[in-house]
Design a protein around this nucleic acid. Sequence first.
DNA 1: GCGATATGAATGAACG
DNA 2: CGTTCATTCATATCGC
Lengths: 187, 187
Amino acid sequence: MEQQTQQQIEDGGNNQAAGTNNRWAPTPPQLRILKGLYYDKGFKYPTPEQIQEICLHLKQYGQIEDKNVFFWFQNLKARERQKLKEFRNVPVGGSLDLNFGSTGSTSNDRSIDLNFGSRVGYGVDGSIMEQRGEYHQEIETLPLFPMHGDDIFGNIKTTSEGGSGYGGDSRISLELSLNSYGDADMV
Amino acid sequence: MEQQTQQQIEDGGNNQAAGTNNRWAPTPPQLRILKGLYYDKGFKYPTPEQIQEICLHLKQYGQIEDKNVFFWFQNLKARERQKLKEFRNVPVGGSLDLNFGSTGSTSNDRSIDLNFGSRVGYGVDGSIMEQRGEYHQEIETLPLFPMHGDDIFGNIKTTSEGGSGYGGDSRISLELSLNSYGDADMV
DNA sequence: GCGATATGAATGAACG
DNA sequence: CGTTCATTCATATCGC
């Protein structure tokens, strides 16, 4: 993803005039946190509880809803995967004729038909090789945010059986490095 | 048509190296082929594999990447659709048909299962906690509006049960102290 | 030199 | 989850 010089800054503090803008856009701090979770922590499969938790925490940086967090992760995952797929060189057998209707070009005038109409018809390679054998979620109970004072569990009730070893207080200090993904990428 | 706070790119001291083409533009032959596929062949939904293939062929006419082909089709489709919508405001005059009285039955049938793949069914605020079986009744309620779920994700029907539910519970102890002052998210 | 337009690029939201 | 839609941002080009 070449996020070059595109960044839609939301207004400095508040946002959403309500009515004119329907589409959520992450504020810079929100983006940073989300990316930190995804890239730094490798946290890509948030559970509903975690989505809510993340959302709650992000609310102090701007208006946001659960579904926004949900979509954000979904889209990022999907697009990374899509990118990999597109960049993968396929040993195409060369069936797609693109030289039809050559308007006075050099030579070559074959007008074979394009085998469109068949979505994913020819699996030249066929090897989808979805290296998705992940056991996602095997990630160690990621420590997202400190409790601060927010009673996040006020109504979520994560069924804390207490049996967990770490749950109580062993908060792993995950000092998210202030890495800016926004500009680290280049084309 | 109304744009909000449009931020102009103000490179924070890191200007893009000149010479590196920022933006791809199709060469005449490329454009001819692309248009030929779209209009002549009616080929509008290329699969990722086909995108690669098209891109490969187009490379002999100039530098091009997969994503360029991808975006080209996306944009063309989107803009044609956009044009059609704009012209639907035809001042046809007269024939003001109002099918009021159609007691729309207000059947909010939309699947409201907000199980993000887990079997949680939490009710943060008691809004959604409905977890029904797989029984769906193929309702043909034509979705006049593509369901504007402005409320909480009252209609995120991910219905992804593939996860098969692991622990389900995930401790959400949070940490991640990031100093958000400064906020250098700019690009 | 600007303003309007065309279009490449990005991404939130939604569908199947 | 992969794909598609819709909206917006960003920029090159054109016209005045």
